[in-house]
Design a protein around this nucleic acid. Sequence first.
DNA 1: AATAACACGTGAAAAAGATAACAGTGCTAC
DNA 2: GTAGCACTGTTATCTTTTTCACGTGTTATT
Lengths: 210, 210
Amino acid sequence: MPSHKSIGRLSLYRSILNRLLRDGVNSLFSHELASLAGATPSQVRRDLMVTGYTGSPVRGYDVRDLLASIGRFLDAPESEGVALVGVGNLGRAIMAFFTGRRPSLTIQAAFDRDPYKVNRVIHGIRCHPMEDLESVLVREHVRVAIITVPAIEAQDIADRLCRAGVKGILNFAPVRLRVLPSVFVEDVDVTMSLEKVAYYSRQGNRAEGI
Amino acid sequence: MPSHKSIGRLSLYRSILNRLLRDGVNSLFSHELASLAGATPSQVRRDLMVTGYTGSPVRGYDVRDLLASIGRFLDAPESEGVALVGVGNLGRAIMAFFTGRRPSLTIQAAFDRDPYKVNRVIHGIRCHPMEDLESVLVREHVRVAIITVPAIEAQDIADRLCRAGVKGILNFAPVRLRVLPSVFVEDVDVTMSLEKVAYYSRQGNRAEGI
DNA sequence: AATAACACGTGAAAAAGATAACAGTGCTAC
DNA sequence: GTAGCACTGTTATCTTTTTCACGTGTTATT
Ligand SMILES: NC(=O)c1ccc[n+]([C@@H]2O[C@H](COP(=O)([O-])OP(=O)(O)OC[C@H]3O[C@@H](n4cnc5c(N)ncnc54)[C@H](O)[C@@H]3O)[C@@H](O)[C@H]2O)c1
Ligand SMILES: NC(=O)c1ccc[n+]([C@@H]2O[C@H](COP(=O)([O-])OP(=O)(O)OC[C@H]3O[C@@H](n4cnc5c(N)ncnc54)[C@H](O)[C@@H]3O)[C@@H](O)[C@H]2O)c1
């Protein structure tokens, strides 16, 4: 049972390793990955333990094998669909960002209540009307959703998503969602992050870990 | 010296308190704030300790006073300007989001290298050419910046920002920036967050704290 | 008036997380 | 061939963060 931070770092390692692989790097040591990730070598080794992959003291970690191992650990057995609710400024930016990126995690359907957006295809993703939310999610077995609607609407949307079987929500609206304990919610609060940056920019303090 | 998490929660409390104030709530108890923030009452009380504000066991916390106290603790003495580099999909969404929001922390200048964006005013914010970066930042005493350029460009931008006197960076590009220890960097990694959600959605695990 | 109830602030205990330490291993170089 | 080296996996230690628990003061109630 690895910690939440550890899971986050594994995802970070993967993105670093993917870039290294594109650059022709075939193997590396824990201290090299640590340096790229802003972590310590021990931390890297400890994180990688949970994936079951074991490197060689001589050659270090094989980038390809390690990527595969992280993938087996982090990803669903088969590729997973994600729904996004709220095709506004932020929602569209995220849709643009994720198109043709990670094959194992793709935004499969978008939803909005604005009739000007409904039934359009935006960044390759079909925008459905809100009344189709439950049916589309159930039909496509969507278990992960992104909320980018205004804060006031977010709780209602979360309730509907949960009723439709969603088990994980990435929430950009600045409210804490109330959901069943079996549903995982991760909040991305940009205002909070910016205020934190402003605070520490004044304290002359070092950046925090990952 | 409060923890990083604690600073984040103070910002969250503030946003909750602001909303409560608009709804006509004048005072509350630690357990009420805790419940809204997804924290425990002890944690709330402990976090608030650092601001120096002390509530009454009878009436709880006065929302207005508490807001003022958090503000004194978190905010700069006078309102602070923020720069944003990379007026793309995400950059524009963030610019739209922050216009007319927090008076103490406003995006004052944007920068992009695309000539179609330069010298336009977007969401009320002037987009400057990259060659003016240093001069504008120094002139306007900007100490906090947001990076929303492609990953490959982010390190260069960070270097220039630091040279121009920036002390805190909110970084949306999926790379770890190398900066002097005196500069604070906060990363927002959407891919990582989404992968985390996907992972825990499969584990039937409870959401993490804040 | 005495007492129960309640929430605050805060020191102490517990839990979580990060770092350091160390034994084991295979290569290199004498 | 074997001493030295550089790395791994993993356990042990240390640090940070969260939770508990209790003394205090105030109001309501008997
Ligand atoms: N834009 C940003 O950079 C940014 C940053 C941080 C947080 N956020 C948060 O993300 C959310 C969206 O921000 P935005 O800037 O994209 O806002 P926006 O107004 O541009 O977009 C909101 C979208 O949600 C749709 N919507 C509203 N209510 C709905 C409902 N009940 N059902 C379905 N769709 C609905 C609207 O039609 C619109 O398309 C907000 O909660 C905001 O606070 C945005
Ligand atoms: N869009 C999202 O939802 C999203 C989510 C997470 C992370 N990100 C990250 O945010 C960054 C921006 O994403 P985006 O979707 O807005 O990309 P984008 O391509 O839409 O925007 C990038 C902008 O940066 C400008 N730019 C590029 N190089 C520059 C330079 N050297 N100097 C100044 N300006 C420069 C471009 O002209 C463009 O306007 C990327 O690093 C991306 O990985 C985006």
